[in-house]
Design a binder for these strands. Structure first.
Lengths: 236, 236
DNA sequence: CCAAAAGTGTTTGCTCTACACCCATGG
DNA sequence: CCATGGGTGTAGAGCAAACACTTTTGG
């Protein structure tokens, strides 16, 4: 971590880093974690003029996935987050300072687990931004985030990744709202419930959550239901 | 290109290369292009004891995709082949000689376009191997090929990638055989034809191909039909 | 008792599947 | 005329989509 970002120390691989798109549901919106782009923000007091995806260079004795996991841990305090390789970006002029190849990962952390508020711990001044209102971004990171979002939407339809976004116990309405938010379309309540229950990937608990109106029964993700769902498509 | 494979010349990025899984339909089977693994094959006359995926280090002034395209061109003489990034492999001990990160691509070249027979031109002594009968492979390349094959199968179900494997004109039976070979299951002739025609991605020509039995009408891929097919699944 | 959110079934249309016979050509 | 592969339609089952009212709680 130097402030030029140009020459990582020799125990790191040159011209190569890992970047992570960390998704979280906050304030009813899908948000992404970003760090200030240091090149344009020398005075610490000034607000950064551009943001970037968090990440780190790759230690010579760490795999790509370990490196990404550590970035997520450093930023959020979570080690068990969902993490998947996204794509490797290597265009020649994507970074003005040097030839830089970034292996992008995307991560999902559950709603409510934002105790290590970014800005605290080792997260420097990382901040959450709604994916619909991103600030100015360095390099090709807007494209990276857009791709991560497409992939998230896609995985949501076919796999059980949706539960990664929610806390351990959740109501079916919360789950449905999550799906609607990410897919960007309304779903029929009865069809949604029937399908998600038939898929057998969540189980009823005897907890209830009160609020306004009738209390909702809470459900839990069944971890024994394999990640890649038996049914080919969860939502057609 | 040296024979240690350890230190690419300084105009290349260190610890990083591109590898390509090139698929082609030959002799009624899906085949992959491999090159001898030089570390284990110093005497040129000896048969290599292990094979590897072709590829090259990354010139400092070339993108990943350009590098992959040039590898395919050098190996097959084709510039327009289908090419897609697959995954980036970066485990610490995948290569015994050095820390090596490989950005894997997969490519598809049409059946019959094997004029620049591997072994000729600049392809050193590259050879085709049926994916079902791979020789001993260096590093994690068996895993890479297996993943490429999964991805090919997957893409075949959802996109129009199948036509990349066939020559410009083909009969519906040839197309069906291709699908069956890659999916590894028999398909019903009538259902196959109905669906593939309904999808509107191929068009009838007035060519016929004779052989034994009744001559077959030849079809052609409609390049205006976008790569990602309108229907969500081509084959359920 | 009223507002607010939770919960619950049925009908209809479409799509996938299974299945068997005739056609055109070359030898 | 016979062997070989090419070409064609239909009936039944299962799945997805559309749709409106009742239930439970808190204030």
């Amino acid at each position: 971590m130097n402030d030029t970002g140009i020459t990582p120390s020799p125990q790191f691989l040159a011209n190569l880093d890992v970047r992570v798109v960390v998704f979280c549901l906050r304030e009813e919106r899908l948000q992404v974690l970003l760090t200030p782009h240091l090149n344009l923000c020398d005075a610490e007091s000034m607000p950064p003029q551009a943001w970037e995806l968090p990440g780190s260079p790759i230690p010579i004795d760490q795999s790509l996935e370990e490196t990404a996991t550590e970035s997520v841990l450093r930023l959020t305090g979570l080690r068990e987050a969902f993490l998947e390789q996204l794509y490797t970006y290597g265009d020649v002029s994507r970074c003005p300072q040097q030839r830089l190849i970034s292996v992008a990962y995307f991560a999902i952390i559950p709603a409510g687990s934002t105790r290590p508020a970014p800005g605290g711990s080792a997260g420097f001044s990382a901040r959450w931004f709604p994916v619909e209102q991103l600030p100015a971004l360095a390099m090709d990171f807007r494209e990276v985030i857009a791709y991560a979002q497409r992939r998230l939407r896609y995985k949501l339809e076919y796999t059980a990744v949706g539960f990664q976004l929610l806390p351990e116990y959740f109501s079916l309405s919360e789950l449905q709202k999550t799906y609607e938010m990410i897919l960007g379309e309304k779903l029929d309540k009865r069809n949604f419930r029937r399908r998600i229950l038939q898929a057998g990937i969540i189980e009823e608990t005897n907890r209830l959550r009160g609020g306004e109106g009738r209390p909702a029964r809470l459900f839990r993700y069944r971890p024994d239901a394999v990640a890649e769902i038996r049914a080919r498509r969860l939502f057609p």
